[in-house]
């Protein structure tokens, strides 16, 4: 695992467990959380203390997110069709919730009340009520949903559908499909919004481009050519 210092551009390498895939910085605990795809574990790295801790989760852990207020960690276990909630990092207490087929991305709402899970093989998004630790809704999107991004002011949930070259927009109050942007680009994967700049930013694996849309009217502003095969399923746009 490599840590790049954005100011100095220096790279620090840390030994990871087998096949690190998802990565997230835990601001509350000041630790780095890594999901290990072939190892069915999560590694918690304390960079300052040079300490590493491992927690067993489900099969093929991928996406990770962290509760914005209380710090619980949620992990999508793609080949167990579950998500794991790590309730207490030190005591290693976990909760498992069954979702639909092949969960890959997991995302907390900004108030931490909901978790959204993208189920790649069942072409759906599961909504988990975090307090109840229970699914309250599954809704269909297009093929191979990958990343979810939320625009709470407009009650909008954006989903990138990799294999459909499209973006689904759902109404978070009614959980109905509100709009769909078809043919946005080839294999849209990473999708982030930037509220300050009013933008939706999408990484398009097939087309080697980043597509930028207007967050309000959903029109394409610009397509920027980038390196070969851009991918991401976490936060990749700096606020």
């Amino acid at each position: 695992m490599s840590i790049i210092n954005l100011k100095t551009k220096e790279v620090e390498n840390i030994d990871a467990n087998k096949s690190p895939l998802g990565i997230k910085f835990h601001g509350i605990y000041n630790k780095i959380i890594v999901s290990n795809w072939y190892d069915d574990t999560i590694t918690i790295i304390d960079q300052e203390k040079k300490d590493k801790k491992t927690i067993k989760v489900g099969k093929s852990p991928a996406g990770i997110d962290i509760h914005p207020k209380t710090g619980q960690i949620v992990v999508a276990n793609r080949d167990s069709n579950t998500v794991t909630i790590i309730e207490d990092l030190n005591k290693k207490i976990i909760n498992t919730i069954k979702v639909q087929k092949s969960p890959f991305g997991v995302f907390f709402s900004s108030d931490g009340k909901k978790i959204y899970v993208s189920n790649v093989q069942s072409n759906s998004i599961s909504v988990i009520d975090f307090k109840l630790r229970k699914i309250i809704k599954n809704f269909k999107v297009k093929e191979w949903p990958y990343q979810v991004s939320i625009f709470p002011e407009n009650n909008e949930l954006f989903v990138s559908n990799q294999r459909d070259d499209s973006i689904s927009i759902l109404n978070l109050q009614t959980y109905q499909l509100k709009n769909e942007i078809s043919n946005v680009c080839g294999y849209p994967e990473g999708l982030n919004i930037n509220k300050k700049l009013n933008l939706i930013i999408i990484a398009c694996w097939f087309d080697n481009e980043v597509v930028i849309l207007n967050l309000r009217n959903k029109k394409v502003i610009k397509k920027i050519e980038v390196c070969e095969g851009p991918r991401s399923f976490g936060k990749f746009v700096i606020d």
Partner: peptide, 20 residues
């Protein structure tokens, strides 16, 4: 955005290729 996009994507890709 282009700078950060390129920079960060390389970071993520490096995970994908060796692991996934």
């Amino acid at each position: 955005l282009k700078f950060y996009a390129c920079f960060l994507f390389i970071f993520f890709i490096s995970f994908e290729i060796i692991s996934h």
